[in-house]
Amino acid sequence: MNATNVWKSGALLTAVGMSCGAFGSHGLRSRQPPLSERSISNWSTASNYLIYNGLALLAISFHPALSLSRRARIATGMIASGAMVFSGSIFGLVLGKDVWKKVLGPLTPLGGVAMIGG
């Protein structure tokens, strides 16, 4: 990823995180059947992680070594993909059916490991 793509990825993750957070605050509370407080808290956590990682990518995009270092480009890809997998799997778990839990449940920690690795 070059600096422009890192910046765009960071902006997109931040915007999606904010949108999902707003939806979680307003849309999930009126959902039928109602979601548990734990599910709403999990949704909030996933939204926050998108925002944090998006802001991190925005900051990283200004670092001069990004365009020179292969390691930095790999790290930014891991951060972006890890945030999407981590948060996306939690969103799916909150909204999904029980069948999804078998597929999405194991993906959440993989996304977390990718974020940490990045």
Rank of each mutant, 00 (worst) to 15 (best):
I74D: 12
N48T: 07
L66Q: 11
L107G: 00
V6P: 06
S89I: 07
M1K: 01
Q32G: 10
I40N: 08
Q32S: 14
K97T: 00
L93K: 06
A11I: 02
L55H: 07
G118E: 05
H26N: 10
A15C: 09
A75F: 03
W43S: 01
S41C: 07
S19E: 07
W100D: 04
F62W: 11
A59L: 15
L66M: 13
K8E: 07
S89F: 05
A80L: 14
A3M: 15
L50I: 02
H63N: 14
H26D: 02
V6T: 10
S47Q: 08
P64Q: 03
G105F: 07
V99T: 14
K97M: 08
G54Q: 12
F91W: 11
N42K: 10
I79Y: 13
S25M: 12
A3E: 12
F62A: 15
N53I: 08
H63G: 12
V85N: 06
P33K: 01
W7A: 15
G118Q: 12
G24P: 10
S25G: 15
S9K: 04
G88P: 07
G105P: 00
Y52I: 05
S69N: 15
F23A: 03
V94G: 10
Y49E: 02
G27W: 03
G96D: 04
G118Y: 08
L66C: 00
G105Q: 00
P33Y: 04
D98Y: 05
F91T: 00
I74V: 10
F86P: 06
I74R: 09
F23V: 10
L68H: 12
K101C: 11
A59S: 13
L55A: 01
S39M: 11
L50N: 01
A46C: 07
K102I: 15
R29P: 03
L58F: 07
L12Y: 03
G27T: 06
M18L: 11
L12T: 10
M84W: 14
T108H: 05
W7P: 02
S67Y: 02
I60P: 05
C20G: 12
G24M: 07
N2V: 12
L12G: 09
L68V: 09
N42S: 12
L12P: 01
L95D: 05
S69Q: 06
P64A: 01
R71K: 08
G54L: 09
N48S: 15
T45L: 00
R38N: 11
L12I: 10
V113K: 12
L13W: 13
V113R: 08
M1Q: 13
L12M: 02
G118I: 02
T76K: 02
G117R: 15
V99L: 13
G88C: 09
L28I: 13
A59T: 15
A3D: 11
P34R: 14
K102A: 15
A22Q: 12
R31V: 05
G105V: 00
N48G: 05
L104R: 01
I51R: 04
L50W: 08
W100H: 13
L104E: 03
S44Q: 09
A114M: 01
S36T: 13
S39Y: 04
W7E: 09
R73S: 08
L28F: 03
G17C: 11
F86M: 12
G118V: 03
